[in-house]
């Protein structure tokens, strides 16, 4: 962790170093595994994305190390973070082989669905209650919003509902839940929620990266829309997130 990983050192002669070398350094979690059975290429593409982003000098990335600096050390008490794809007609979780699992672990959280060794699985409400996650992320593969969960009497005892820690995942140039060129922003967003720091500087980072990626700087209103502020208005610590 002390020195940044060599970008083109003699000990690392391969043109595109495996992201594992970069991300698994120190206390960082395991890199995303290339799914063995019927896995989708998105995962493989995802790991390529980190390598690519890290190698672009203008990018605010720098991989996991930059993400980790300035975050409090949670030790062994990592909060459980469940990713749901966002459907209103079923609970589809990101299992242990999913990219979302990787993001959760990267940001310092714990995925309660890790034991399900697939990309995506359907669970029932009871399983959700049994896992009792502290944070729930609602993906952009469906219209589900935190208010739906806050209003469901069956879910009233859930830790994430009581603590108002259900969040709709942002949606910028692309959904932030699958791997994409906007992934480093997602990592910062998740890390801010997991550590309770509110991801300071995230809004500025979005402006900076969008200028690089798209050649345009989003306005304040557009940033609110990207970060799903209307949907997340009732969720804990969201008003000041990223500022």
């Amino acid at each position: 962790m002390a020195t940044s990983p060599a970008r083109s050192g003699p000990e690392n002669p391969t043109p595109t170093p495996a992201p594992a070398a970069r991300l698994s350094a120190g206390s960082c979690p395991d890199p995303p595994r290339t799914p063995g059975r019927g896995g989708r290429s998105a995962e493989a593409d995802g790991s390529g994305t980190y390598a690519l982003l890290d190698s672009v000098p203008a990018c605010p990335g720098g991989g996991a190390q930059k993400l980790r600096t300035g975050l409090p050390d949670l030790g062994d008490v990592r909060p459980s973070v469940l990713y749901l794809r966002g459907a209103t007609d079923g609970l589809q979780v990101g299992g242990g082989a999913s990219y979302n699992h990787f993001v959760t672990e990267l940001a310092g959280g714990r995925n309660p669905a890790a034991a399900i060794a697939v990309v995506q699985a359907t669970i029932d409400v009871e399983q959700l209650l049994a896992w009792d996650p502290e944070i729930i992320l609602l993906g952009n593969f469906g219209p589900a919003i935190p208010a739906t969960m806050y209003g469901d009497p069956v879910l009233a005892s859930l830790r994430a509902v009581r603590g108002r820690r259900v969040y709709k995942v942002p949606l910028g140039g692309y959904r932030w839940d699958p791997p994409s060129h906007e992934s480093p922003l997602m990592w910062q967003w998740v890390a801010g929620l997991v550590h309770g720091t509110g991801a300071p500087g995230l809004r500025a980072a979005i402006v900076q990266e969008y200028a690089f990626l798209y050649g345009a700087e989003p306005t304040g209103t557009q940033l609110d829309a990207i970060l799903q502020l209307p949907a997340n208005a009732d969720s804990a610590g969201y008003a000041d997130l990223g500022r």
Partner: peptide, 13 residues
């Protein structure tokens, strides 16, 4: 019984 137990039995199952 707890609220959650009642919710599981009456609201889910």
């Amino acid at each position: 019984w707890s609220d959650t137990e009642a919710a599981v039995v009456l609201g889910v199952r």
